[in-house]
């Protein structure tokens, strides 16, 4: 890690040593080259290593399940898988998902240049097997070997006041994405009204509908309100929160706690085998809505919760891991 006081050239030299590929490079590393290496490492680690906050709750779940049940068996295999993926530096799950970038940056940040570098990193990560060829043309059905294409990856840029560039990546597999759901209140089938009791009802309904399809035990990211697109996006961004954080909004904090406890009484269990752990966590935010609309948008994240983040140093190297 480069110290701030270190002269630029010396810092670059150290960084280069740390991230250089086995092949000897003849040209000096450009700033964009460093960002490329940093993003490649970010993608590798996101695909292969589960963040500590998620590992912790999976261990807790394992200790909670009855011995010699299929629920315990599933969680043991999950444990082994987490260790093995890290050791082998290979994807935790073969569905390396939609690649979502969330970038927080100061003013005067070149978004186009960043996106170009990120795309190159995805092509390389796919060649190296950190990512699967996961980009399919929706009209022709053709799989794109480079893993790129319109809407893949997606970039979400946010300007912030800090001088840091923070890059978060989420690899969201299709299984869990498919069980995401958006309710419009009132929702007749379970008599969910346009209030917080109605919100709670549809969230629980969404988890029952998901059963084991989304590779549970999972985590919910939820947005109450917003429009159809902002609601889903905010619900995904909730999944960037650390699992052990506390929602500053008291009402939402209480709802989060209640949802986890209530869902764990549904006995859907790991993989939908039945068992005590259906949810590992729940993160909820709210957005303003128009009087006529009341959406509840739910994003489901599987246990293979692949999200990592870095702070990019001035020279483009990784100066800090965020999870």
């Amino acid at each position: 890690m480069a110290k701030k006081s270190r002269p630029k050239a010396a810092a670059k030299k150290i960084i280069k040593k740390k991230v250089a590929s086995p092949k000897k490079k003849t040209s000096p590393a450009k700033a964009s080259g460093d960002v490329f290496s940093s993003l490649l490492e970010l993608l590798r680690r996101t695909s292969a290593e589960l963040p500590d906050d998620i590992q912790k709750v999976i261990l807790e779940a394992l200790s909670r399940e009855e011995k010699n049940t299929t629920a315990e068996y599933a969680l043991k295999i999950i444990q082994d898988n987490i260790a093995l993926a890290k050791k082998k530096s290979q994807p935790l799950c073969q569905d390396t998902g939609t690649v979502l970038f969330f970038i927080s940056h100061p003013a005067n940040f070149d978004q186009i240049k960043f996106a170009d570098t990120a795309r190159k990193a995805i092509v390389k990560a796919t060649e190296l097997g950190y990512l699967r060829q996961n980009s399919v043309n929706s009209v022709t059905g053709k799989s794109e070997p480079s893993n790129l294409g319109p809407g893949h990856p997606t970039f979400h840029f946010h300007q912030h006041k800090s001088a840091n560039v923070e890059v978060r990546v989420m690899l969201k597999g299709g299984g869990c994405e498919n069980v995401g759901i958006q309710y419009s209140l009132p929702y007749g089938p379970i008599e969910a009204g346009r209030d917080m009791a109605g919100v709670r009802k549809v969230i629980l309904d969404g988890v029952v509908k998901a059963q084991g399809q989304g590779c549970g035990p999972g985590v919910l990211g939820i947005c109450i309100g917003g429009d159809r697109s902002s609601g889903y996006l905010e619900s995904k961004e909730q999944l960037l929160r650390k699992l052990d954080d506390t929602n500053p909004d008291k009402a939402l904090h209480e709802l989060e706690t209640d949802i986890v406890a209530s869902c764990n009484r549904l006995m859907i269990g790991p993989m939908g085998f039945g068992g005590k752990t259906t949810l590992l966590g729940c993160k909820i935010c709210s957005q303003q809505r128009v009087p006529a609309s009341f959406f509840v948008s739910i994003s489901y994240m599987c246990w293979a919760y692949r999200r990592q983040g870095i702070v990019l140093g001035k020279n483009g190297a990784i100066s800090k891991w965020l999870y």
């Binding site: 599933a74 295999i77 999950i78 082994d80 898988n81 093995l84 993926a85 082998k88 290979q90 994807p91 935790l92 799950c93 073969q94 597999g173 299984g175 084991g212 590779c215 993989m271 085998f273 599987c302 246990w303 293979a304």
Partner: peptide
């Protein structure tokens, strides 16, 4: 048969 979803490494081995 239900395999463990997401356990891509254990299963690949």
């Amino acid at each position: 048969f239900h395999a463990i979803g997401g356990a891509a490494q254990v299963l690949a081995e």
